[in-house]
Simulated scan of single mutants.
Amino acid sequence: MYHKVVRRRMAAAGGLLVVAAGLFVATAGERTSVTWPERVIGDAVAAVQGWLYRPAGAIGEFFGNLRDLQNVYEENAVLKASLHNYFALQAQVNDLETENERLRKIAGLMQSPRGKTLIPANVVDRQPDLWHDILTIDVGSAQGVQKDMAVVTADNALVGRVWAVHDHSAVVQLLTDTSRQPVGISALILGVGPTPPLGIINKVSPDQRTVQMTSIGMDYDIKPGLTVETSGYGGLFPKGLIVGTVSSVMRGEDGMTKTAIVRPLANLDNLQEVFVVRRNGG
């Protein structure tokens, strides 16, 4: 009750001050000087107006800050959405570039070999316990596939050979297979003098990550990083298929030759599309 009385009295006093200020302003034009009551009332009115203005200004500033905060929040949401769209578009661009590069390699492979016919195939089955040994493709004798034909990737990297053929599918023996009789691949090492050294790829390392090229002459200076490709001798694998690169060299088991450890170029852990290679008329 007391506070209500005080508020009423303050409101009444404020009203009187405003009325008095209005009267003094209305009659000030008729006089050349301001009397001391006018100065006192003017100062009081100014004080009351300042007392009323400061809370109003603070409230206005508070709501202004709220509007600014809302604008910042909305701008932040727009930026987040734009950033998300950017990353999504970038991912799509990367996928398209990868697909474009894959198709370019396939087109180049289909056009480059002479005297060879390529049969495209998809990998349709791989067993976990035989992951480094065999895989199944979706082409067979109906598409011209025959036993012992070479199988390569879009990079012309040797994968292995056709081991068994059905009407519309075939089983491919990988380079790193250790569960079947290994096939000797006649190969040569490029970049070693005018006559590349020859050897036979007929062994697989215990971890099935590399193969061994044996029977290399002791006189050749073979360094890691050199490319190994099929020689074409023997008639099983056409010449020029890339086997991989030399990772290390050691003395052969007979003590009279060298053995090169070769890491396959083909990513045998991740094969989706391959090509069966046959000679024209084969």
Rank of each mutant, 00 (worst) to 15 (best):
L188T: 09
I189H: 02
L190S: 12
G191Q: 06
G193Y: 00
P194R: 12
P194W: 11
T195A: 12
T195M: 12
P196I: 00
P196Q: 13
P196N: 14
P196L: 10
P196A: 13
L198T: 10
I200C: 14
N202Y: 13
K203F: 15
S205A: 11
P206I: 05
P206H: 12
R209C: 00
R209Q: 06
R209L: 06
V211N: 04
M213W: 05
S215M: 10
I216T: 02
G217R: 15
M218I: 09
D219H: 13
D219S: 14
D221P: 10
I222E: 02
G225C: 07
V228R: 00
T230P: 05
T230A: 08
T230V: 03
G232S: 06
G234T: 01
G235K: 07
G235T: 05
G235W: 09
L236G: 01
F237D: 10
P238F: 13
P238M: 13
K239H: 13
G240P: 01
G240Y: 10
G240Q: 08
G240K: 11
L241P: 04
L241S: 05
I242L: 15
I242A: 11
G244H: 02
V246H: 05
S248Q: 03
M250I: 01
R251P: 03
R251H: 01
D254L: 01
D254V: 01
